[in-house]
């Protein structure tokens, strides 16, 4: 499926406080397309989970916010890129309760449940890219 990008912004995420700035930026974009409060909360929460991984495992990276449309619907697409060590076993990382750290292991699978489209690509030694899409 091809999407048309209507608006784009890239934000560097290197420290925890950048996460707040990013969350607020997503909120601004979501409000602009008059996304409902529940969907806003869902995508921002999903973004919060991914940003944590980006900081904790990827050593920081870039987060991009886009307003996209497929011609009928409008939504928010978020892309997170890091140049960290990558994830050796994606299936495992995507399963509930799996964590290499001390967390609950809800981050990736939880984020996936909160959005309409979820994509993760990872190459060991190169980095990880996560894409989230939520229609309004």
């Amino acid at each position: 499926m091809t999407f048309t990008v209507q608006n784009r912004e890239e934000i560097a995420v290197t420290i925890e406080k950048d996460a707040i700035f990013f969350r607020n930026a997503v909120k601004t974009y979501a409000t602009k397309i008059s996304m409902g409060l529940l969907y806003q909360t869902k995508i921002i929460t999903a973004a919060s989970e991914i940003v944590r991984n980006l900081l904790k495992y990827g050593g920081g990276g870039k987060a991009m916010i886009e307003t996209v449309t497929d011609g009928r619907k409008v939504g928010i697409r978020l892309t997170f890129k890091d140049s960290g060590p990558g994830i050796p076993d994606l299936d495992k990382a995507m399963s509930d309760g799996f964590s290499t750290g001390k967390s609950l292991g809800l981050g990736l699978p939880g984020a996936k449940r909160l959005v309409d489209q979820f994509d993760i690509r990872s190459t060991v030694g190169v980095g990880t890219t996560v894409t989230l899409l939520k229609w309004k």
Partner: peptide
Amino acid sequence: MQPAVAITLIELGL
């Protein structure tokens, strides 16, 4: 707790 936060937490699996 705001309703949207409660719904999101449940869907997240917490």
